[in-house]
Design a binder for these strands. Structure first.
Lengths: 234, 234
DNA sequence: GTCTATAGCTTGATAGAC
DNA sequence: GTCTATCAAGCTATAGAC
């Protein structure tokens, strides 16, 4: 009997061959990125995915769990990639320390590259991260949980590269970096309008060329103005 | 007859003397900042304000109009203050041009000062701005509408201060600045945890000391690496 | 794994009394 | 200006057939 061949009916579940779970994740990623967690209903998602409403509960447990599943899905791969690049940069500089530009780049390039050329799923994912990072409700939970281990390693390497710089300066510098980076991912098109079309928020290659020099110079300025004033005080 | 004295009954409308419209705005500001537009119901807001549900429609027309009213309320005052500071900095430097630090400061200080010491309403407002700025749904509409006139002036002064710098570099630098600034306003507490308590996201004075040097150095680095390569190219 | 059907609530908005 | 009462529509979640 024929077993490998799927029968070609026109009912809902066979209109696309891809399994429902992945299609739900993709649709949820896109819609959550656009409108946020509360701005999207489970029905919006399952309609967009072309699957039944009940499958969200079946595969994920509920809407909230779906949201965290979306957030989690790409985080692991991403962080492995960034960690590898960071350690590569560190090894390449031995017995010295890497430049600040190289460190910042290891932190941001894998993200910018995926967002630019990884496909629409990745683009949505980073827009979602941008919103979560700036949300008092979700940021402290999700960002901390999924990205802080990598960030700690990143900051440790930064401190090796700036041995005389007080730790606070590195932490504040990191906050400025992540703010600049995540707003970039939001791609709101605001810079397009402001610049009269001269800059495009979708042009992540331009961001890649500029972010590391900008941030590295910022770190140096912070450290320069502080390391002398460290011991004692006025 | 007595006309100035209000009768002291204990029904809902006189439990607080303040008019309902303002109390709705305050409650909406706080809740929208925490959970976003869709994360808050009209009832959440009126319950928190201690007024009746129907008053949102009566005073604002609907939920959406309330949201934009909240966003609009403090924008005007804020921008007037920033513009005044910007022009003051410019005049003080004549016949020369102001430092980048002074320009960035005129842009960010009025915001940081209000958020730090303006009271809880201002704090919520800036957290709301942080979310809106990073939202693909709301950012392009609300940020552009309420803040872009000032931003254009800010960028014009920046260009005066960096006459040899290509315009693109200023626009990208501005995007990094606004990203860093708005994430600061979100006060998610993430830097607190990362730094083990060494830095506090509520410590906006520390941000004030560091943001201008960081960003000014970033602008200089962008311009330095680009202005030579401006004409021609390989 | 997928679908139908439905339960039980909450939503935004408003008509009309005061 | 404020409140009561109510509406129709939408929401998440689930029990049970297939």
């Amino acid at each position: 009997m024929v077993v490998a061949r799927r029968k070609l009916t026109d009912n809902k579940k066979t209109t696309r061959a891809r399994p429902a779970k992945g299609r739900i994740l993709d649709a949820a990623e896109r819609l959550f990125a656009q409108h946020g967690f509360y701005g999207v209903s489970v029905r919006d998602i399952t309609d967009a995915a072309g699957v039944d409403v009940a499958l969200v509960s079946y595969h994920f447990g509920g809407k909230r769990e779906l949201f965290t599943a979306v957030f989690q899905r790409r985080a692991e791969l991403l962080n492995a990639e960034r960690l590898e690049m960071l350690e590569g940069v560190r090894r390449a500089a031995l017995p010295g320390v890497p430049t600040l530009e190289a460190i910042v780049n290891a932190f941001s390039y894998p993200l910018l590259e995926r967002s630019a050329r990884g496909g629409p799923g990745w683009k949505s994912y980073f827009a979602l991260v941008a919103q979560v990072n700036n949300s008092p409700e979700w940021g402290p939970v999700l960002m901390t949980q999924h990205f802080d281990p990598l960030v700690e390693r990143f900051i440790a390497v930064m401190r090796e590269a700036l041995p005389t710089c007080p730790a606070q300066e590195i932490y504040w510098g990191y906050q400025f970096l992540t703010g600049a980076l995540t707003l970039t991912f939001a791609e709101t098109g605001r810079i397009d309008k402001l610049s009269g079309g001269l800059c495009k928020s979708s042009d992540l290659d331009s961001v890649h060329e500029r972010l590391a020099p900008f941030v590295a110079a910022g770190f140096r300025a912070l450290c320069a103005s502080r390391e002398a004033a460290k011991p004692g005080g006025p």
